[in-house]
Design a protein around this nucleic acid. Structure first.
Lengths: 256, 256
DNA sequence: AAGTGGTCTAGACCACGGG
DNA sequence: CCGTGGTCTAGACCACTTC
């Protein structure tokens, strides 16, 4: 039985204080100097211990201020509302729009940018287009309470998007799915694929993620009756989002 | 414009080599000693750089061996198969069973343990039982290719589970939902809630997670026509799992 | 035995944030 | 100003892996 290393012991001790409620959301931990004295360890060892807590998303350090217990209020993303999947309004299904966020968060804003590129293998296989063929790409940043919450990138087959509103470099107020609907491409279903991973440095900066927070990646391929009409790839801050899917008959769920 | 710190530069350099394919899955990075010489930095600085790559899940270090580029082949978890949601076999819907894993991974085994506890607020609200009332808890470990892939904990209201097979401390071969179905509680729908976070040390050990790998947490509440019949809470290794949901009419998806 | 990463020490200088 | 965390150095000893 190998002895547990010093910094792990210290990390466990501090973690216990948080889990026991001795330290709660927003509280400041003792300074690194104080922890040196308390545990009789060098500063680097203390920092190793704090580092593991940071990487577990339990605390966050700010230069000049101190180290604080993390606080997060994740909002729920209603990925599929079973009650919405009514035959009368099929085009309502599957848009990642502000509505779905509004329920728990503050106000939401978006800013869009546009580019055209050739399809990578990843995009091509999901959008069901030939690799290397041109696709229209629209990128949207989503903010909640002035904090960046997600980055969405949507891909449209060129033959659908060309000479339409989708190629204008400006926000589409009424939602891209409405535009597609008007063009005759009504989304009747979609396939979601969800993954979790650590952010790239660029994503960490864009989403203002403290270290130790994963991201969630959502690929949503939208289908009309006949074909794939849109692929959207969204990266969410992992500490601020919950995905909810309602499948089948869940009358008992809403009954309360 | 603050200058980028040395260890971040080094991390970025090494990350580029991986992303450019100069180093690919399974390759060994130069040793810390070699990197010291190459970058002209002290070992601690090199280790800081490697630490960020570890925390991004890009590399994994093994004592006495070296540091290696991570390789992961995530399998897809078919959380909702639209084609399966047929009225003829409603009881097929929503079980987290081996079938759903088998498609991409190797063989799968499970071992179960059983306990009885009083419902925490979290469990009570999801299972729709009174806080503090007794619930039957079944825990299952799932392995793929001899590697631990998920830990599932299922909760049943005591009035449903008592004096049934669900209270026997052994694996239920034909699946818990079959048992519930035979008891008159047929699952007709479910609500999934997905989150992402960094693992606790216990989870990291149980799932054999290298540092820098998040977990995905799935809460699935199963409903019969009238009530919640089961809550299952599953923790997956984040690098080994993709969730797929199929919503609405996706005939075009399967057409290919 | 030689090389690897894991752990730890004891210093140092810096930028940031608040009195 | 002074205390905070951020960064960096130059050592040291250890356990583990491979030969």
């Amino acid at each position: 039985m190998p002895e547990e290393s010093r910094y792990r012991q210290i990390a466990r001790d501090l973690r216990k204080r948080i889990q026991d409620g001795e330290l709660t959301s927003g509280d400041r931990l003792p300074s690194e100097k104080e922890l040196e004295d308390e545990f009789g360890a060098s500063r680097n060892t203390i920092r190793l211990a704090l580092g593991t807590l940071r990487n577990q998303g339990l605390v966050e350090s700010r230069a000049g201020r101190g180290t604080f217990v993390q606080q997060v209020i994740p909002m729920t993303f209603h990925a599929s509302l079973a009650t919405r999947r009514t035959p009368e309004a099929p085009e309502d299904s599957g848009d990642i729009e502000d509505v779905e966020f509004a329920e728990l968060g503050g106000q939401t804003r978006a800013f869009a940018e546009l580019l055209i590129q050739s399809a990578t293998p990843e995009i091509a296989s999901r959008l069901r287009v030939d690799e290397g063929s041109m696709v229209v790409v629209r990128r949207t940043f989503r903010y909640v309470d002035d904090r960046s919450a997600s980055v969405e990138t949507s891909y449209y087959p060129m033959d659908i998007a060309q000479r339409t509103e989708l190629m204008l470099p400006e926000d589409i107020g009424r939602g891209a799915l409405h535009v597609l609907h008007e063009l005759g491409y009504t989304q009747v279903g979609y396939v979601d694929e969800l993954r979790s991973r650590m952010p790239t440095p660029e994503e960490a900066q864009q989403l203002e993620l403290p270290p130790g927070i994963p991201v969630m990646e959502l690929y949503r391929t939208g289908f009309s009756k006949n074909r794939a009409i849109r692929l959207s790839w969204t990266v969410f801050a992992g500490n601020g989002i919950r995905f909810q899917y309602e499948i089948g008959d869940i009358a008992a769920y809403h009954a309360e």
